[in-house]
Structure formats: structure tokens, C-alpha cells
Amino acid sequence: MNVFRLTGDLSHLAAIIILLLKIWKTRSCAGISGKSQILFALVFTTRYLDLLTSFISLYNTCMKIIYVGCAYATVYLIYAKFRATYDGNHDTFRIEFLVVPVGGLAFLVNHDFSPLEILWTFSIYLESVAILPQLFMISKTGEAETITTHYLFCLGVYRALYLFNWIWRFYFEGFFDMIAIVAGVVQTILYCDFFYLYVTKVNAVQRFQ
């Protein structure tokens, strides 16, 4: 554990909680892509199956349970409790175009051809592109509420901090996970355009367009 990973995890947690609280407080999920949230729930489910097979630390176990729980709570709020406010007409990204190729890639490029390892690899690849339905929705409607942009900013910061974490671990622990690093770089790049808009627009006019 290093400072980059800890702050990365906390930033990730902040993003998840910001989104959950926003939907809960406003009683609305307008502007939020339910499809991205389904993909994140799928990411956490397939990655954290090791909760059942190996214990790493109390911190690790608690965070995994919180992430999975919040992901399903978010999906529940969007598709059940506040379904009437869900902006399905603008959430038109075809997620099968992500899930199918990512599933195929996980079968072809992985550390070990075993069920749990393939599912872990699938979750890593899928996480790197899971935000695309949300970004697509924003580009389609041309706007996002400020709080939604804070959510995206925290998610992007989490990915960027994980890159520093891997640099740190490479130098000080000799740790090197090619699959996680390549997917992490791809994921961070997807946020770059958003980062630019966030810094130049959101903080200037409090409205993201």
C-alpha cells in the first residue's frame, strides 16, 4: 500500500458515493447512464469473486464489499426506485459492442487460462471502457450537471493515481502487471478529453457543455 493507491481508492470511493448521494438527494437519475452503472456492477462482480477464495486484508475485503454494494444500490435506484426519472432515450450506447469484444479479449489475453482469472481479466478490460455509455450520453445531450462532472472527475483521478501507484510499485516492489497497466492507461486516456473540459469549463461557468 502506498499513498497513490490509497488516495486512488478513496477517490474511487468518493466518486461512487457522490453519484449515489446525488441520485438519492435529488430523487432523480436524469443525466446518468444506467448502462455504465450496469457495466460497473458487472466489473465489480466478476473481479471480486476472489472474496470467496482468498483473504488479502480487512481493508481489501471491506472496500470490495462497499464497492459491490454501492454499484448494485446505484443500479437499483436507476432501474427501480427512480426509474421514472431515468433518461433512457439518451442512454442508447449498445453495451454488447463492449461486453462481447472484451469477453473475447479476456479469453485470448490473460495471465492464466482459469475461470476466475479470465473473469478478473474480463473485469479489468471492461472497467477501462465502462464509462463510454456515460460519456456518449453527455456528448449526445451536450450537457451534464455539475455534480455528474464531479463524479467523472473523481473516477478519472482514481485511474490517474493508479498509474502513479504502478510506477511506484514497479520501482520499489518490482511489481508489474501488464494487463492492469495497459487497461489502466487506456482508461485514463478516455478521461483526458473530459479532464480538459472539466478544468476549463466546469470551474469557470458551473455548467458543463
Partner: peptide
């Protein structure tokens, strides 16, 4: 590449 025996990150 190295194969991590256990995935210790979130």
C-alpha cells in the same frame, strides 16, 4: 510477463 499470484488491488 510476471503472473501475479494474487490480485491485491481493488
Amino acid at each position: 510477463t510476471d503472473v501475479p499470484a494474487i490480485h491485491d488491488e481493488l
